[in-house]
Simulated assay, not measured.
Amino acid sequence: MTAVRPQILVIDDEPQIHRFLSPALDAAGYEPKRADSGQEGLRAIALWNPDAVVLDLGLPDMDGKDVLTRAREFYKGPIIILSARDREAEKIAALDLGANDYVEKPFGVGELLARIRAGLRQGMLTPVAGGVVTAEDVIIDLDRRIVTRAGERVKLRPKEYDVLAYLARNAGKVLGHVDLLKTVWGAGHLHDVQYLRVVIGQLRHKLEKDPAEPALLVTEPGIGYRLAT
Results as ranks from 00 to 15, higher is better:
47 L>Q: 15
90 E>A: 15
70 R>I: 10
20 F>I: 02
129 A>L: 13
121 R>N: 10
42 L>A: 06
14 E>G: 02
46 A>C: 03
61 D>T: 01
145 R>N: 15
31 E>Y: 06
177 H>P: 00
181 L>H: 02
225 Y>C: 03
174 V>N: 01
124 M>W: 09
98 G>C: 02
73 E>Q: 15
218 V>K: 13
69 T>S: 13
203 L>V: 04
113 L>V: 01
199 V>D: 01
109 V>W: 01
157 R>N: 10
93 A>W: 03
201 G>S: 07
206 K>G: 03
132 V>Y: 03
80 I>E: 01
79 I>T: 06
147 V>I: 07
169 R>I: 00
187 A>C: 05
27 A>F: 09
181 L>D: 01
158 P>R: 09
88 E>W: 02
73 E>D: 14
218 V>L: 08
134 T>R: 14
189 H>W: 13
144 R>G: 06
135 A>W: 05
182 K>T: 13
23 P>E: 03
103 V>K: 06
140 I>D: 08
214 P>T: 01
228 A>T: 08
151 G>C: 10
166 Y>A: 12
69 T>M: 11
30 Y>C: 00
198 V>Y: 04
187 A>W: 11
164 L>H: 08
216 L>W: 01
7 Q>S: 11
172 G>F: 04
33 K>G: 09
137 D>Q: 14
35 A>S: 12
50 P>A: 07
67 V>S: 00
162 D>R: 09
36 D>L: 14
89 A>D: 15
124 M>H: 11
150 A>C: 05
200 I>W: 12
